[in-house]
Design a protein around this nucleic acid. Structure first.
Length: 565
RNA sequence: CCUUCCGUAGUUCAAUGGAUAGAACAGGGGUCUUCUAAGCCCUUAAUGUAGGUUCGAUUCCUACCGGAAGGACCA
């Protein structure tokens, strides 16, 4: 149990005669340390209903709270219009530092999601199309939520939903088949080059389809063969290409720090969804102009087509099938889906329809949306191929790292480049658009991933040097003058709960920045490894605890914290 | 036309209805014979407009202005 839980319970118990419920106690960290470590505004809120002056009620509250004050509290004050400010006692703060060091990589683990199965779908790729920076955005948020949900006790299953079937893919296969087929692929030496070839087949196939109507029936025939899984050369080539794309997807998401427990393919969901929709017509869906539709107006939404007049499932039906497979296979308590916010209204209709088939599909689903990335002020679109792929962007940033640090290994350069990109994405609240200006957003200075990594690496260096000098980190013993850092580190577990509550890792990103800033500011004015100073072991312990919090924060953001840089 | 989302320093982002709206970048000025200068210290600068609710509004409500996304057989 962490301090915010303990405190909340204590306050609720102390104030039970005032009918203040635990749930209604809002513990917040005041912006200014002068206002204590925690503040509650309960007196302000409750005074309204009672017709008492807020400060007067606050005084009654404080009287109860101080009657038998626990040791972890130093004092309680009333401030402003009736805030109650709580100051944690320094011995408590120091015991927390000791806990952090003792628990190390387990510090902050919690029970918020204990016993809950949490499904998180993210990074769903369009096979045959490049993994571009929009996918990186989805991946960064998804991976961070996966790690954080796991950290607070969830039984988390990460999965991805690759789009493996479409007319567009038929176009790509047609083009490749007409331009060398399997042999053309075999000429490419690496997986990366093969993927580039497939990407260009996609673009050229789409163009050929639009420009030369004569080929359209051939393309449709190939697409049909793929759909029906007929053992033709086209289907055989498709199977090969699909596997290459999956291999590539696994490789790139691994480089980004993700792995998936399962893939559910669009082709699979399509079949399932189509059956599902037909089985629930006319109870849920209705046939109109030959198409199976769901009339969203009954839920204040709009009508969408689930099976088109030609009898093919649309994305809507596939999403129904996907829900069916997810809940059948995993029985999740919470099923999180991460997409860009263009799909927000769309997905409301899907969930409304789904809720009429099985209420849990709707009630246990959470749709987390992220904004769109704009690059240099231009709206991104994967269609024309003008958008950098994840690999291109990463490699570009890596060369910037080498410029700054000529000794950097490939792994280190990759870790720093990734940190820059991921942090840019994660410091913004999920749901908002992100302006992606490589020159500015991806800076290695200031509010950035590399800043956090640098601070962490610097602490590791201190620890190594301290070891050599015979200074060992120690929290007990002589107290120094108070260091602001002590009032920052214990907050970590509380922040994780907010990340999960809001499904937005940006809380953690900003917290980590604040920790790093406070540390650097202290470091700038204090000599830590001073053999003459009796407080040196304590200082080093404080640095060590800070290093742990930074490393854990970075880990939960999906960012690697190098020992040295 | 309808629905949803978004308007905060020059720029990129914070602020769970709270206390003096915080950072970073850019600009200006300092700082390495001393633990990693990817750092630190100082400095200029912001809530689209008009109302309303509240002890208190960047946050909630209404209208307007501006931007984005979605709105039946595309994905």
């Amino acid at each position: 149990m962490y301090i915010h839980h303990t405190l909340q319970r204590y306050i609720a118990t102390a104030l039970r005669d005032f009918d203040v419920r635990e749930h209604d106690i809002h513990l917040e960290h005041p912006a200014d340390f002068m206002h204590g470590d925690y503040a509650i505004n309960s007196a302000l809120i409750y005074a309204r209903n009672r017709g008492i002056a807020p400060r007067e009620l606050a005084e009654q509250f404080v009287q109860e709270l101080t009657k038998d004050m626990p040791a972890y509290l130093e004092r309680i004050e009333i401030a402003g219009p009736g805030f109650i400010n709580l100051f944690l006692a320094r011995p408590f703060l120091q015991s927390t530092l000791a806990d952090i060091i003792a628990d190390s990589v387990h510090y902050g683990r919690g029970s918020l999601l204990s016993g809950k199965r949490v499904l998180i779908e993210h990074s769903s790729p369009n096979l045959f199309k490049p993994f571009h920076i929009g996918h990186m955005m989805n991946n960064a948020i998804g991976e961070s939520l996966v790690r954080t949900a796991e950290y607070v006790g969830g039984d988390v299953i990460a999965l991805s939903y690759p789009s493996d079937i479409s007319l567009g893919i038929g176009k790509a296969i047609w083009f490749l088949l007409s331009n060398g087929g399997k042999e053309a692929l075999a000429e490419r030496a690496t997986l990366h080059e093969q993927i580039l070839l497939l990407g260009s087949c996609y673009v050229q196939g789409v163009r050929a389809f639009d420009d030369t109507p004569e080929i359209q029936s051939d393309v449709r025939e190939i697409t049909r063969q793929i759909f029906e899984q007929e053992p033709t050369p086209a289907y055989e080539l498709y199977t090969l290409c699909k596997q290459l794309n999956i291999d590539y997807f696994i490789a790139i998401t691994k480089r980004l720090g993700s792995h998936f427990a399962d893939f559910i393919f669009e082709s699979e969901a399509g079949v399932r969804g189509q059956d599902m929709v037909r089985a629930h017509t006319p109870s849920v869906f209705r046939v109109s102009n030959g198409a199976h539709i769901y009339e969203g107006e009954q839920d204040g939404l709009h009508t969408r087509v689930f099976i088109n007049a030609e009898g093919y499932p649309t994305y809507e039906a596939k999403d129904i099938g996907l829900l069916a497979i997810k809940f059948e296979r995993y029985q999740p308590d919470i099923s999180v889906l991460i997409t860009d916010h263009e799909q927000k209204e769309y997905y409301k209709v899907v969930l409304a329809a789904a809720g009429n088939i099985a209420p849990v599909w709707r009630d246990c689903s959470v749709h987390v949306t992220h904004g769109r990335m704009t690059l240099l002020g231009q709206k991104m679109s994967s269609r024309l191929g003008g958008v950098p792929t994840a690999v291109e962007l990463l490699d570009t940033l890596r060369s910037d790292v080498y410029e700054k640090n000529t000794d950097a290994s490939d792994d280190l350069a990759d870790a720093i480049a990734l940190a820059a990109i991921k942090f840019t994405i994660l410091k913004t609240q999920a749901g908002k658009n992100i302006n992606f200006d490589p020159d500015q957003s991806l800076s290695f200075e200031g509010d950035s991933g590399p800043y956090l990594q640098y601070t962490h690496a610097r602490i590791q260096s201190l620890l190594t040097k301290g070891e050599g000098m015979g200074i060992h980190p120690r929290i007990d013993g002589a107290l120094s003058e108070e260091v602001l850092l002590e009032r920052m580190l214990y907050r970590f577990p509380h922040i994780l709960e907010r990340v999960i509550k809001d499904y937005s890792p940006h809380h953690l990103a900003h917290y980590a920045l604040e920790v790093a800033r406070v540390f650097n500011s202290w470091y700038g004015g204090t000599k830590i490894l001073d053999p003459e100073n009796p407080h040196a072991p304590y200082y080093l312990g404080l640095a060590q605890a800070t290093g742990i919090i930074l490393e854990r924060s970075l880990y939960l953001l999906g960012i690697h914290a190098p020992e040295r840089m």
